[in-house]
Design a protein around this nucleic acid. Structure first.
Length: 513
RNA sequence: GGUAGCGUAGCUCAGUUGGUUAGAGCGAGGGACUCAUAAGCCCUAGGUCGGCAGUUCAAUUCUGCCCGUUACCA
């Protein structure tokens, strides 16, 4: 009876190309999904695409194609990215799918019937070019409308509104009663601050005169629903027939925490008598070489080429190691190269080769059973106990960078252990005791690498698979075997050599794997 | 303008429920070794812990103000 774990990413907006921010969120969610699978949980991992709205309609018009043709194209590009990043999602929802529209309309109808959706007239300043109402905060310092808005006129428009404000007291209580609802904690404080001010009701429609590319309101076919009732509902519509709700974790960026995910979504669900999601995991933004990543910035998409150039797993490792979940982080080529070389190539990759070579040379490629058990061995095993505890504790908080940091302390310790044992000297000794120490040395490093590769599998699936195969072991599918030091490596046939992370300095860096 | 956070070694950051010599990783310098992807190991950082003032026997750690910076809100 495994525990269910339903995890989602935000759905990407189908206007524009995927960039680093899109990639990171998928990798983060994927690593957590894979981790939970190996914990034995019954994981369902959803990601998808938000395909309606003004921008999509406009882009399609400009290109003189049907919006559906456009979003089909975009969906293919985003799904290609998922493949490149080796994302293990169980489902991919697109908001133009019938299964989604049906749920959105059912939601709207139910709220309408309950009297929680009403029609109202709003008048104000309207930008024809941007097709949106403006408020005074949009004015520039001189009090004029910035030129990006084009012609601005006074307009009156009827729309439908959701009685959001009615749920404000409930939401505040919910946040106070559920300190884990928003991770990291300091984001929760921001939302509570936001909720000190009275909320407005939420406009949820657009007249078809302005926007046709959307889901029709079931109770008024002259309108389509706008943004949040369409987009947020994907989390529910994807699993409505699978018994997966509520979601255990929505992985989102800090830009859409408040108000959409922390306010609108729980209130919408409350209004529908549906349980809220268990947790919002909020990550920060990537900067590129110290400057903000913009969607239109060419660099932003180029960073994805790192995955192709240096390997998907190295890219995944870098993203996970470099960003403290919740904080911003900077992506730069020198920084990437440093992590690749030091952490992956030298510390881990080279260690694998040290083992393979010594087992090959001294034991004809078969891992020996441990012999001597002295302080060095005991300390290494003790360190694993400590490392394993920290690693899983950090993962439980979704603090992957800290988990990796702790794991690399152990990897370093294996290198230091080899130095202390000096197996190259032991191999030259005729003493029985030295032979027993040599046995232990290689047996311990093999086991240490098995443990490392197992817990690291969610971050670098392919590489860890390779690593385990090279030391003669099966692929890891569960964490059950990492809670205690074992001797399962004894007798394993290791490969001769294994370059998991080729040096970057090579003049002819291989463009393809 | 309001709210919250941050400001610690060249860089990225940890930490101190106030108390003898403030830590890690990376970079940089030096050393011993050689199984390995010239990788790994060992040693080396004397940094007013943003500024000013206060509380205290004692503050980098508490309080206030200021400066810088970031986020959210307006």
């Amino acid at each position: 009876m495994s525990r269910p774990f339903y995890i989602t990413t935000a759905i990407d907006y189908a206007n524009g190309a995927p960039h680093l921010g899109h990639a990171y969120e998928k990798v983060l969610a994927d690593v957590l999904a894979r981790h939970h699978r190996m914990l034995g949980d019954d994981v369902y991992f959803l990601t998808g695409l938000d395909e309606h709205g003004q921008k999509v309609q406009q882009t399609a018009q400009k290109r003189q194609i049907e919006p559906q043709v456009l979003v089909d194209e975009v969906a293919a590009v985003f799904q290609q990215m998922l493949g490149l990043l080796n994302i293990s999602n169980d489902d991919y929802i697109r908001t133009t799918e019938p299964r989604h529209k049906v749920v959105v309309q059912a939601f709207l109808q139910k709220l309408f019937d309950k009297g929680l959706i009403f029609k109202a007239t709003k008048s104000g300043w309207y930008s024809v070019r941007q097709e949106q109402f403006l408020s005074d905060k949009d004015r520039d310092a001189e009090g004029n409308w910035p030129s990006i808005y084009g012609e601005v006129t006074q307009t009156t428009e009827e729309n439908y509104y959701f009685k959001l404000s009615q749920f404000q007291p409930w939401l505040i209580e919910h946040l106070k009663d559920n300190p884990d609802f928003i991770n990291p904690a300091h984001r929760r404080k921001q939302v509570l601050e936001f909720l000190k001010e009275p909320m407005n009701d939420l406009c949820i429609s657009r007249p078809k005169a302005r926007l046709t590319w959307g889901i029709e309101l079931p109770f008024d076919r002259e309108f389509v629903t706008y943004v949040w009732f369409d987009a947020l509902t994907n989390y529910y519509s994807a699993v409505v027939d699978k018994g997966r709700w509520p979601a255990d974790m929505h992985v989102i960026g800090k830009d859409i925490l408040s108000p959409p995910h922390a306010v609108y979504w729980p209130c919408m669900l409350k209004a529908l008598d549906i349980a809220p999601p268990k947790q919002l995991l909020v990550h920060g933004w990537w900067t590129l070489n110290g400057s903000k990543a913009s969607k239109s910035d060419g660099n932003a998409t180029d960073s994805l080429s790192f995955a192709q150039k240096f390997g998907t797993d190295a890219f995944r490792y870098y993203l996970c190691r470099e960003m403290v979940v919740g904080e911003d982080a900077d992506f730069s080529s020198p920084n990437f190269a440093q992590r690749y070389k030091a952490d992956l190539g030298h510390n881990l990759g080279n260690l694998v080769n040290r083992l393979l070579n010594m087992v090959g040379r001294n034991y004809a490629g078969t891992v020996p059973a441990p012999g001597a058990d002295e302080e060095l061995e005991q300390n290494l095993r003790k360190l694993w106990t400590e490392t394993e505890r920290k690693f899983f504790a950090h993962f439980a908080e979704a603090q992957i960078s800290h988990a990796l940091e702790a794991l690399w302390v152990f990897v370093s310790a294996m290198n230091a252990y080899i130095e202390a044992r000096a197996p190259w000297k032991l191999a030259k000794s005729a003493e029985t005791a030295d032979r027993a120490r040599l046995d232990s040395c290689l047996a311990h490093v093999a086991e240490g690498l098995r443990l490392t590769a197992t817990v690291l599998t969610p971050v670098m699936p392919k590489t860890c698979e390779q690593l385990l195969i090279n030391i003669g072991l099966p692929v890891a599918t569960s964490f059950a075997s990492v809670h205690a030091w074992s001797t399962v490596c004894t007798g394993a046939k290791v490969a001769e050599k294994c370059i998991l992370f080729p040096p970057l300095e090579e003049p002819e860096a291989p463009a393809k794997a």
